[in-house]
Structure formats: C-alpha cells, structure tokens
Amino acid sequence: MDILDTFFNVPVLIRTYPLLLWGLWVTIQIGVVSIVAGLVLGLFLALARLYAHPFVRGMARVYIDVLRSIPILVLLIVIYYALPFLGLRLSPFMSAVAALSLVSAAYTAEIFRAGIEAIPLGQFEASRALGLSPRHLMVDVVLPQAIRIVIPPLTNNCINVMKDTALASVVAMPDLLKQATQAQALTANPSPLIGAALIYIALLWPLVGMVSRLERRFAQADR
C-alpha cells in the first residue's frame, strides 16, 4: 500500500466528506457561540478588573488568572463528567461552549484591559471634565479607540478558540475532529484525518492572514 492510498485515498475522501462537512458545521457552531459569549463576558470582566469595587476587582483577577492557567481539556472534563455529581448536567454542546467561552473570556478580558489602558489619561480627563457619565466615557470615547488596538489580538484569540473546538470530541460532540476519527475507524483508513486537517486550515488561514494585514495597517496608521 503506498502513501497516497493511505493518506490521500480519494475514494475514501469522497465517501466520507459529507460526514466531515457535518462535523465542520458543528465545529463552527461551537466556535462562534463560544467566541461571542467569551467576548461579552470578557468585556465585563475587563471592566470589573479595572473599575469595580476592590473586592470584585480581586475576584475578577483571580478568575482571569486561574482560567488562563487551567488546560481547557481539564476544564471540559470537569464540566462534563464532574458537574453532574453536583446536579448540573450539561449537554456535550453546552459543556464544550462553557469550557471554551469561560477560558476565552479570561484571555479576552486581558486583551480588553490592555486596550483600555493604552488610551491616554487625557481622554479620560477630557470626558470627565465635560460631565460624561462613566458609561458614556466608555461607550463613546474609550472603547471606540480601544477596539482598534484590540482587534488583532482578539482575532488571534478567535483562531485559538476555533482550534480548541477539537477538544469537544472527547465529550462525544460530533465536531470535525470526532467525525474524522469516526470516519477513519469506519473506513480503516486515515485519509479523513488529513481531510479534516485541510478543512481546519482552509477555515483559519484567512483569519490568520487577516491578523497580519490588520497589524500592518494599524502600525502604519500610528505613524
């Protein structure tokens, strides 16, 4: 059996690609929901970390540091296999989304914090001197400027979340990787894995390229 037959077996790929595409759809669902939830939670965490009551600020910091230290796979297994003992039983989809967005929120919070802290003090002072409320100061003055700074690192984080969706396969979620390993077992041939790899690359390469382009554009605009 030569290498092409083993890893690029076209009949096998043709037979299994509907499974892979179905897996891709599940992967995208998990990824997009986790990214959006992580962004929202992360923004609130960042604001809490910067401006809340000292106690809440401390809690936010502990959350951010712990969630950045824990391997997502471990968190996912805890959520899926341990929480039911406490009476909280989440579906595989919800478990995957919970693990991914809880961790993503911690990283997102640090990105937002850095973005907000990069805004010159004069912007805060000018807003306060005009009588703007803390909410308008954030929404109208600080965040629109911070977004520009955080878009490249946020996109990087999105790429990581998308890749980490593959971990959902350990809780029996039929995502792209799970479908590929099942197809591999079914056909006794690893070509579906290579197919899955190619699909991941096709999905994420454009995002990776986008990060570089954005970074270059913002670097020029700053000059």
């Binding site: 002072e125 009588g131 409320s133 109208d140």
Partner: peptide, 26 residues
C-alpha cells in the same frame, strides 16, 4: 469647561462630533 495643555480632543471623532458629543449625551 476645561481646556487642557495637550488639547485632549477625541481622535476617533470628527471636529464637529467632538463638539456635539457632550451636549447630546449630558
């Protein structure tokens, strides 16, 4: 009203919007 040494205009807003912001929001 306060005018600062370093202007502190809002760089992401046009001149017109800089002047309009606080009267609208406050």
């Amino acid at each position: 009203g306060m005018v600062f040494q370093s202007f502190n205009l809002f760089p992401h807003l046009t001149v017109l919007r800089n002047v309009m912001l606080a009267p609208m929001r406050v």
